[in-house]
Simulated scan of single mutants.
Amino acid sequence: MPKVYLDAIDQRILAALQLNGRLSNVDLAAKVGLSPSPCLRRVRFLEEMGLISGYRATLERENIGLGLTVFVGIKVERHDDGVATNFQSSIQNLPEVTSCYLVSGESDYLLEIVVPDLAGYQKFLTDTLLKLPNVRDIRSNFAIQKIKAASPLPLDHLRDCDSDHQR
């Protein structure tokens, strides 16, 4: 459940901005059936509530020389707050790590890493990953082909919340 009530117009705004974050307010308003002023107020509200965390361009990795994506499972030495905080802080400033998740299962963390090629990954692995604090085990999975990546989030579950709210 979302933390705030989102009506159908809010949902359409979110869907439209996920597909094209560069829409002008006038175009967005027309697309969702509002005039520009109330549309802008709603977008600002969605931003303030933390539902929209930013806008950015999606780059084609291969076209800018980042042809290798590696999913890396990392186990840490022990499970305590200090180890977790230390590891998570270390990951924050590594631009090659495009996402990092605390996970359950065989690994403690799952990282998505982008590098130019296998030699670039080997260098990143030996010079950086293996030197991270409290790392016990690293398992690398190489992406062979991108099937689907960085797609808009599904919003259909919000319609259920909308109908529940109207009752």
Rank of each mutant, 00 (worst) to 15 (best):
L110R: 13
S99R: 15
L158T: 02
S99E: 08
V43F: 10
L14T: 09
N141C: 07
Y109W: 14
A119R: 12
L153D: 13
R159H: 01
Q92S: 11
D7P: 01
I74D: 07
E77R: 00
L34Y: 11
H165V: 14
R136N: 05
V97R: 02
L6W: 13
K31M: 14
Q166T: 02
E47W: 11
I138T: 01
D27F: 02
L125V: 00
N63H: 03
I138N: 01
S35M: 14
L158K: 11
D108T: 03
V26N: 06
P133C: 00
M49A: 13
D162K: 10
V76Y: 01
V83M: 03
L40F: 12
D164Q: 13
L125Q: 12
I147Y: 15
E106Q: 05
F45L: 09
L14P: 12
Q18R: 03
P2W: 00
E106L: 13
G50V: 15
P152K: 12
L6F: 11
R44T: 08
R136L: 05
H165M: 14
E60L: 05
L23K: 00
D7F: 06
F45R: 14
L125F: 14
E48G: 10
G33M: 04
P38W: 09
P2M: 12
G33Y: 04
P95L: 03
N93K: 15
F142Y: 14
L51G: 07
V135I: 04
D164F: 12
S140F: 07
R61D: 12
A84Q: 04
L158G: 13
S24P: 09
F87H: 04
E60G: 01
Q122S: 07
Y121W: 09
A15V: 01
S99M: 12
D137M: 05
Y101G: 10
V97W: 02
R136D: 08
N20T: 09
Y121M: 14
I144W: 10
T128L: 11
V83Y: 00
S90K: 00
H79S: 09
R139C: 04
K3H: 15
V72A: 08
D160Y: 05
